[in-house]
């Protein structure tokens, strides 16, 4: 089958940069990041099932600076993908597809995902007693 001469849709550089476009790309990027994070979830569960020594190893890594940085990134990725995913579900019901509404919900997703991430980490450190 010859597929070489088919017309192509305009590529990404043709379009003016917009928030809604940025959010769509970020949704995919955070999805890929969360897939990597899912590997960590499996490691954590398998370590828990393997015993105290393996669990201590995984927790040792997660407690390190690199571990915390990765967890912080995954927290934001999850909050973003969750908030923007709910935005997508409303679109599927035909709600909020107008330009202004889509723009407003884009800002809401950015603000909410950052606020939720910070709240989760403050709550986590408070629960661990690290913030007095």
């Amino acid at each position: 089958m010859n597929t070489g001469n088919r017309p192509l849709s305009p590529h990404i550089q043709v379009y003016r940069w917009q928030w809604t476009m940025m959010l769509s790309i970020t949704h995919r990027a955070t999805g890929i990041a969360l897939a990597v994070g899912a590997l960590l979830l499996v490691c954590w569960l398998l370590a828990l099932a393997s015993g105290p020594a393996a669990f201590a190893d995984v927790h040792g890594f997660l407690g390190s600076w690199l571990g915390r940085l990765l967890l912080f990134g995954w927290t934001w990725s999850l909050m973003y993908h969750l908030a923007n995913g709910i935005r997508h579900l409303f679109w599927d019901m035909g709600v909020g597809l107008e330009l202004q509404a889509a723009q407003a919900s884009a800002y809401a997703v950015i603000v909410l995902s950052i606020a939720a991430t910070l709240a989760i980490w403050v709550a986590g450190y408070m629960a661990a007693g690290a913030l007095g």
Binding site: T75, A123, G124, A127, A128
Partner: peptide, 16 residues
Amino acid sequence: SIWFVISMICLASADY
């Protein structure tokens, strides 16, 4: 996922 995140906050200082 909301349940999972809240659980992880509660387990922040939990041991094995």
